[in-house]
Deep mutational scan, measured.
Amino acid sequence: MDVFMKGLSKAKEGVVAAAEKTKQGVAEAAGKTKEGVLYVGSKTKEGVVHGVATVAEKTKEQVTNVGGAVVTGVTAVAQKTVEGAGSIAAATGFVKKDQLGKNEEGAPQEGILEDMPVDPDNEAYEMPSEEGYQDYEPEA
């Protein structure tokens, strides 16, 4: 019985440690998101679009440190934060509304985080759909 109880105690310690790591990862992701939003706020009209992409990228980098179902929630929060940063930029006159959601080359930025393969159960990952990809044929 002692062996059984000791095993359960060790398992509990492992769960607590994993929860603490997840909590730490979420806190880091939130900190990076805040950094990115402050970065966007300090940019001029020309830099705002690039700044919004930076927020998304920093958040995406930190999301990889967070495991399990938390990833889905962090990704949703990050996307809403990026959308909010863009709205703030438009409201303050840093950028025109028609410039939001495009990178410096004018290509749409939507789907940055949505296409990231995420499995809350950590069982399997699927690649994003290939609808947006084109076949590449090298020139002879």
Results as ranks from 00 to 15, higher is better:
54 T>P: 01
56 A>L: 13
10 K>M: 14
9 S>K: 12
48 V>E: 00
123 E>L: 10
98 D>R: 09
135 D>C: 06
70 V>E: 01
37 V>A: 06
50 H>S: 12
88 I>S: 02
55 V>D: 00
138 P>F: 11
52 V>Q: 01
57 E>T: 06
30 A>E: 00
76 A>P: 01
28 E>S: 10
49 V>M: 14
56 A>W: 13
124 A>R: 08
32 K>T: 02
15 V>H: 00
76 A>Y: 09
126 E>P: 10
50 H>C: 10
74 V>Y: 07
118 V>C: 13
106 G>S: 14
134 Q>R: 12
44 T>Q: 01
88 I>D: 04
96 K>F: 15
96 K>L: 12
80 K>S: 06
72 T>L: 14
29 A>F: 14
110 E>W: 04
91 A>I: 05
57 E>F: 05
7 G>Q: 11
89 A>S: 05
17 A>D: 02
60 K>Q: 04
15 V>Y: 02
19 A>K: 02
33 T>H: 01
110 E>H: 03
74 V>W: 14
131 E>W: 06
39 Y>Q: 03
129 S>P: 11
36 G>V: 11
34 K>T: 02
91 A>P: 04
91 A>S: 04
59 T>R: 01
24 Q>V: 06
121 D>V: 04
114 E>A: 03
74 V>T: 02
64 T>W: 07
12 K>A: 10
40 V>L: 14
10 K>V: 14
132 G>M: 13
51 G>E: 01
50 H>G: 04
72 T>V: 05
112 I>L: 05
32 K>Y: 09
35 E>K: 07
106 G>Q: 05
121 D>R: 04
81 T>V: 15
128 P>N: 08
99 Q>G: 14
83 E>P: 05
108 P>L: 09
76 A>T: 14
103 N>K: 10
37 V>C: 08
122 N>R: 14
137 E>K: 04
26 V>D: 00
14 G>I: 15
43 K>G: 01
130 E>D: 10
67 G>A: 13
21 K>G: 00
31 G>W: 13
17 A>T: 11
137 E>F: 08
109 Q>E: 10
100 L>K: 04
120 P>F: 06
103 N>W: 13
68 G>I: 15
36 G>I: 15
128 P>C: 05
96 K>Q: 07
112 I>C: 05
117 P>Y: 10
83 E>G: 06
63 V>G: 02
59 T>M: 03
21 K>A: 12
4 F>I: 07
108 P>M: 10
125 Y>C: 07
80 K>D: 02
119 D>Q: 13
11 A>M: 15
117 P>H: 05
1 M>E: 00
29 A>I: 15
23 K>T: 04
118 V>H: 07
56 A>K: 09
55 V>M: 14
126 E>V: 10
44 T>N: 01
139 E>W: 08
87 S>R: 04
90 A>I: 05
76 A>R: 09
62 Q>N: 08
122 N>F: 10
58 K>R: 09
58 K>S: 06
103 N>P: 11
34 K>N: 01
88 I>V: 04
30 A>N: 00
125 Y>R: 06
30 A>G: 01
37 V>Q: 00
105 E>V: 08
52 V>E: 00
35 E>H: 07
126 E>A: 15
59 T>Q: 01
34 K>C: 07
19 A>P: 00
122 N>P: 07
108 P>A: 04
31 G>Y: 15
105 E>W: 02
106 G>H: 08
15 V>G: 00
22 T>R: 01
115 D>C: 06
74 V>K: 01
50 H>I: 03
34 K>P: 00
9 S>C: 07
21 K>H: 03
41 G>D: 00
49 V>S: 10
124 A>M: 14
122 N>W: 08
7 G>K: 10
1 M>I: 00
58 K>H: 09
14 G>D: 02
118 V>N: 12
65 N>H: 05
13 E>R: 07
22 T>Q: 00
97 K>A: 10
20 E>I: 11
104 E>R: 15
79 Q>C: 09
26 V>R: 00
137 E>N: 04
64 T>F: 12
53 A>V: 10
53 A>P: 01
140 A>K: 08
41 G>M: 13
31 G>K: 11
67 G>S: 08
14 G>R: 13
59 T>C: 13
122 N>G: 02
129 S>W: 04
103 N>D: 12
61 E>I: 05
58 K>C: 06
55 V>T: 02
137 E>C: 07
129 S>E: 09
68 G>P: 07
105 E>R: 14
122 N>E: 12
94 F>G: 04
131 E>S: 13
99 Q>K: 02
11 A>Y: 13
9 S>P: 00
104 E>D: 08
111 G>Q: 12
47 G>K: 07
121 D>L: 08
79 Q>M: 09
37 V>I: 05
124 A>I: 02
131 E>C: 12
49 V>P: 02
9 S>V: 10
137 E>M: 05
118 V>M: 09
4 F>K: 00
72 T>Y: 14
129 S>L: 06
115 D>H: 13
26 V>S: 00
20 E>G: 02
131 E>T: 10
89 A>F: 11
122 N>I: 08
84 G>C: 14
71 V>F: 09
28 E>F: 04
75 T>A: 15
19 A>H: 05
37 V>S: 01
41 G>T: 13
99 Q>R: 06
34 K>A: 10
131 E>N: 10
37 V>E: 00
117 P>A: 05
77 V>Q: 02
117 P>G: 13
110 E>Y: 12
78 A>C: 07
137 E>Y: 10
113 L>W: 10
123 E>V: 13
119 D>M: 09
93 G>F: 08
117 P>L: 03
80 K>Q: 06
71 V>P: 01
16 V>D: 01
45 K>T: 09
69 A>G: 06
43 K>D: 00
51 G>M: 15
38 L>I: 03
133 Y>E: 10
54 T>M: 15
125 Y>F: 08
66 V>G: 02
76 A>G: 05
56 A>S: 13
98 D>A: 04
109 Q>T: 10
4 F>A: 00
116 M>H: 12
98 D>Q: 06
1 M>C: 00
84 G>R: 11
68 G>Y: 01
70 V>R: 01
115 D>Q: 08
115 D>E: 12
131 E>K: 07
107 A>D: 09
14 G>M: 15
88 I>K: 03
59 T>F: 14
24 Q>W: 05
128 P>T: 06
81 T>H: 03
71 V>M: 14
